[in-house]
């Protein structure tokens, strides 16, 4: 467990600029919307930032392995007595710490705005928790596709795995939200109105958690058999 924590902390440190920018953005939006305190604007705030959380989780994890290999920083790390799955778990945990901090900031900001606008906040914590699980699924799927694909290909691959139903729905096909929890979460996010959480929401959250475990395991199996060196010249 210790190597995973060390690698996660190291990842967070290497990405602190991204985290800072995102937090500054939350605060700036908060200041802007706080001036109006109207229901529509508070909803716009949380819906928009929900999508940002999903975007952040994906974009943090898609390029990381390729960057580490290209910069050759991965060599010193994997020359130590750690397993490759621990390395992946460290990166995933690091990304989740950043996304978690972002989600927490969004939760606190929304809660404050909702109170100012006298909106109910009962369902907010549950929604944000499920959103966070969805972000975790995004990160795990992105990591999975980037262990064997170049980032340019890994991103579309991850998008297909995560969001295929959004395309199928246009053709009238509705795949199970348990297989595609992140698509389901984006629906919840775009319609979010501070409604109390139903069992449907919890099931989506649980499906996302399962997706995290499954894709981390798949990534670990594939990564264990990959050559990690790239040509330096």
């Amino acid at each position: 467990m210790r190597p995973i924590l060390l690698l996660a902390a190291n990842f967070v440190r290497s990405q602190w600029t991204v985290l800072t920018i995102m937090l500054v953005y939350v605060v700036a939006m908060l200041g802007f919307i706080g001036l109006h305190e109207q229901r529509a604007e508070v909803l716009f705030f949380i819906r928009q930032l929900s999508f940002y959380a999903i975007f952040l989780a994906t974009m943090l994890t898609i390029p990381v392995i390729q960057n580490e290999r290209k910069s050759r920083r991965i060599l010193a790390v994997l020359s130590k007595g750690i397993h490759r799955w621990q390395y992946l778990a460290g990166l995933l945990l690091g990304a989740l710490l950043i996304v978690g901090a972002f989600c927490l900031a969004v939760t606190l900001a929304t809660w404050w705005l909702a109170r100012q606008a006298s909106l109910p906040t009962a369902g907010l914590g549950a929604y944000m928790l499920v959103l966070f699980l969805g972000c975790a699924a995004c990160a795990a799927v992105s990591l999975f596709s980037s262990v064997f694909l170049h980032p340019f290909v890994a991103l579309p691959a991850a998008i297909i795995i995560l969001f295929l139903p959004l395309a199928l729905e246009l053709r009238g096909v509705y795949p199970s939200s348990l297989l595609f929890p992140v698509s389901a979460i984006t629906h919840v996010a775009s319609d979010y109105t501070f409604q109390p959480p139903g069992t449907g929401l919890w099931r989506i959250g649980a499906a996302a958690a399962v997706q995290v475990i499954v894709f981390l395991a798949l990534a670990a199996v594939i990564f264990a058999h990959r050559d990690i060196t790239v040509t330096s010249e």
Partner: peptide, 28 residues
């Protein structure tokens, strides 16, 4: 690998203070 030390060709590190880096790798 815990009993092995390795220095790569064209070695590269994270952007952290040198002393912390060495401790980080030792801790791994």
């Amino acid at each position: 690998r815990r009993r092995v030390g390795f220095l790569a060709e064209n070695v590269a590190f994270y952007h952290r203070p040198a002393g912390r880096l060495v401790r980080f790798y030792g801790a791994l």
